[in-house]
Amino acid sequence: MSIEFQITPGSATPIYRQVVDQVRLAVAAGDLSAGDPLPSVRMLAEQLVVNPNTVARAFGDLVRDGVIESRHGQGVFIAAKRKVFADDERDRRLSAVLDGLLSEAAALDFSAAEVRAAVDRRLKEVGLRKR
C-alpha cells in the first residue's frame, strides 16, 4: 500500500510535522504496514516540492520513534511494531495527548459521554488494533 501526502504550507503545523503525522496516521489506519517502502528523502522532497532537509527531519523523527526503519542501501521502510518506550513513558505520552484533547473538549463544552462516543467513532474509522 502507499500513502498520498497532503502538504499545506502556511499552517501552524510545520511541514516536517505534517509528514510525520500523515505517516503515523497511515500506519495506524493500516494504509501502510510493516515492510512497505517509502520513497527516498530526495524523491519525496521533489514530489511534495519541499526542501529535502524537511523530509530528512521528518524521517529522522519517525526512525527515532520506531515507525520507520532505514535499511542500508535499500531505502526506508515501515518498521514492524515494537516497543520503543518503557511502559511508564508510553503512559506518560498518552496522558499528554489526552490532556490536550480533554481540555479542548471541555472548552468546547462537550460532556464526558459525548467525548467517549466521539473517540469510539474515530477509533472505528481509524481501526486501531482491538487488544
Binding site: I7, P9, G10, I15, V49, V50, N51, N53, T54
Partner: peptide, 10 residues
C-alpha cells in the same frame, strides 16, 4: 511569498 519560502528554504 512565505508559503513558498516554507516549502523550499532551509
Amino acid at each position: 511569498l512565505l508559503d513558498d519560502v516554507e516549502r523550499v528554504a532551509d
